[in-house]
C-alpha cells in the first residue's frame, strides 16, 4: 500500500484511535471533575491539567494540592495502560474497541502508588506522561512524570503497580 491509500488508512487508524481515546477518557467522572485532557501525537499521549482555583491546596502560596498532583499522575498512568491495550489492538489490524462499537477496555486497578513531590505545583497548566516499564498478563509497573514550564524541571513523579484486567473480562 502506498500513496493515497496508505494516507487514508493512516487517517482511519488515527480517527479510530481518537474515538477510542475519547470513549475511554469520557467514561470516567473523576477525570472530568479534575478537568484532565489527553493530547495524542502518533502513539504518544500527554495528559494536560488546566489550572482551576478549586485545585489549590495551600491558598497562601498558592500551590496545587498534593492530592491533585497525585490524582493527575495516577489518572495518567491508568489511561496510558488502557491506551497501550487499545493501540496494540488497532495496530494488530483490529478496528479498535470504539470503532467496533464495543466498550473501552476495563480499567486497571491501582495496587500501590508512590508520589515524589519535587517542587510546588504552580497555579498554571500542568503536563504528564507515563511510561509502562513492565506489563505482564496480570501486573503492570508504570512510571509517570509531571512538569509545568519545562520538561526538564519535573514538579512530581510517581511509580505505581496495577492489576490489569483480562481483556475479555
Amino acid at each position: 500500500m502506498s500513496g493515497p491509500a496508505a494516507t487514508a488508512a493512516a487517517a482511519a487508524a488515527g480517527d479510530g484511535r481518537d474515538r477510542a481515546l475519547a470513549a475511554l477518557v469520557g467514561g470516567v467522572p473523576f477525570i472530568a471533575f479534575l478537568g484532565i485532557r489527553f493530547d495524542r501525537r502518533g502513539d504518544e499521549l500527554t495528559a494536560l491539567l488546566p489550572f482551576a482555583e478549586r485545585l489549590i491546596g495551600n491558598p497562601s502560596l498558592p500551590a496545587l494540592h498534593g492530592g491533585v498532583t497525585a490524582a493527575f499522575l495516577e489518572v495518567t498512568a491508568i489511561v496510558e495502560l488502557a491506551w497501550a491495550q487499545i493501540r496494540d489492538e488497532i495496530e494488530a489490524g483490529g478496528p479498535g474497541p470504539a470503532a467496533a462499537g464495543g466498550r473501552p477496555p476495563r480499567l486497571s486497578r491501582t495496587i500501590d502508588f508512590t508520589v515524589d513531590y519535587l517542587r510546588p505545583g504552580l497555579p498554571r497548566e500542568a503536563y504528564a506522561r507515563a511510561r509502562v516499564n513492565r506489563s505482564g498478563r496480570r501486573y503492570a509497573s508504570v512510571h509517570v512524570e509531571a512538569w509545568q514550564d519545562s520538561r526538564a524541571r519535573l514538579f512530581a513523579q510517581a511509580t505505581g503497580h496495577f492489576l490489569v484486567p483480562a481483556r475479555d473480562g
Binding site: V28, P29, F30, H65, G66, G67, A71, E74, R109
Partner: peptide, 27 residues
C-alpha cells in the same frame, strides 16, 4: 460523590480522590 468515581463499571471512587484525603490528613 458521583463526580469522584474512577471506574464507571463499579461506581468505586477513584484512587486519586483517596490520595487527596490521605495527603490532607497527613499534612
Amino acid at each position: 460523590n458521583a463526580a469522584l468515581v474512577g471506574d464507571p463499571a463499579t461506581g468505586v471512587i477513584h484512587g486519586g480522590a483517596v490520595s487527596a484525603l490521605m495527603d490532607t490528613a497527613g499534612g
